[in-house]
């Protein structure tokens, strides 16, 4: 009798465990998802993550499970990335960052960064992107991208331009652009995009390479001449690409992506990928993003990975020049 009871208990236990693990696989997600952000609350990555997270549970495959944004600032996002890398690859601990920042932080560490973006992680999908723009003060005699090419040749060697820090994608894209144009210049790094914008609006520098969203609200002080991407930015359709103006077409953008461990269960990747596509297409999400001057755009895992690989191949020579190998 006793033996029988024990057996039933074991059987029941085994069954529930089996059911449990089966259920866990079939019913992903069964608990809230954590999205780590490597920057403080209120920044660009954080606001995108929060806008995204607030719509994620509405997506069909998500079982109504909410996503929670966890801020863990430090090491240009690498502290949070390391936490995600070291946690269980079960699809409940994910990471959000734009590929530009992630790949450059990896490249400039020359192998010392704790996480290798495309080796340790995979892109699940992307829901926004950072676009680099060439900007001048409104009082500048440079009115267009064509003017810029002429002016830069005439003043070669005497040019001073501002940027948001040497480790930023916008800066390195700018350096690559000037290099292709054969322009010698002095860059002046400021702390963050707003610092660079401030110096540009105060006419302390001739021009700046900065995120195009930084110009929103500053239309009376700043003129945007062109973007480094191959396509025009949908939030700013009037701004041409620099390629259109017969200047080097870099085709550089920084997709903002949701990343996870490379060992994530296939089901989680599929469901999350579909959820990203769903959220990126929502009007409410697009509205929240547009208010910040950011673009709601969907890029699949493959497209995001391709854009990230392009960042690596295009920017690596510039990174190696700026951050000389030691």
């Amino acid at each position: 009798m006793k033996f029988h009871k024990t057996l039933t208990a074991i059987g029941a236990l085994a069954l529930t465990t089996a059911l449990g693990s089966f259920a866990a696989q079939a019913d992903y997600p069964e608990k809230p998802i954590k999205i780590y952000v490597g920057f403080s609350a209120g920044g660009g990555t954080d606001t995108t993550a929060r806008a995204f997270a607030s719509f994620l549970h509405e997506s069909e495959g998500m079982n109504g499970m909410p996503a929670v944004v966890v801020n863990k600032p430090g090491g240009t996002g690498m502290i949070a990335a390391k936490i995600v890398k070291e946690s269980r690859p079960d699809g409940y601990t994910l990471y959000m960052i734009n590929s530009g920042t992630f790949s450059i932080t990896d490249m400039k560490s020359f192998g010392k960064a704790p996480v290798k973006p495309l080796e340790d992680f995979q892109i699940i999908g992307c829901m926004s992107q950072l676009v680099t723009a060439l900007q001048v003060p409104i009082s500048s005699p440079i009115k267009s991208a064509d003017d810029f090419a002429k002016w830069a040749k005439d003043n070669n060697g005497k040019i001073k331009w501002g940027n948001s820090g040497r480790g930023s994608m916008h800066t390195l894209a700018g350096m690559l652009f000037l290099k292709r144009m054969g322009i010698q210049s002095q860059d002046i790094p400021f702390k963050g995009g707003s610092g660079a914008r401030n110096a540009l609006a105060a006419e302390k520098v001739d021009f700046a390479f900065n995120g195009i969203h930084m110009a929103a609200g500053f239309e009376s002080k700043i003129r945007v001449l062109g973007v480094t991407s191959s396509e025009r930015d949908k939030v700013h359709p009037d701004v041409p690409t620099l390629g259109e103006a017969k200047m080097p077409n870099l085709g550089i953008v920084g997709p903002m992506c949701l990343w996870g461990s490379k060992d994530l269960p296939a089901e989680a990747v599929t469901k999350l990928g579909a959820a990203i596509k769903h959220v990126a297409g929502l009007k409410g999400y697009a509205r929240l993003m547009k208010k910040q001057g950011l673009l709601a755009i969907h890029r699949s895992a493959e497209e995001g990975t391709a854009a990230t690989k392009k960042l690596y191949t295009e920017l690596r020579p510039v990174v190696e020049e700026v951050f000389a190998k030691k």
Binding site: S194, R197, A201, F218
Partner: peptide, 26 residues
Amino acid sequence: LGVPGSTVAAILIGVFLIHGIQVGPT
């Protein structure tokens, strides 16, 4: 200027943006 003068101000920038208020000269 869109430049935060304190930690509190830095977080407030995020709130302004979330609610669609574009900080800056306009």
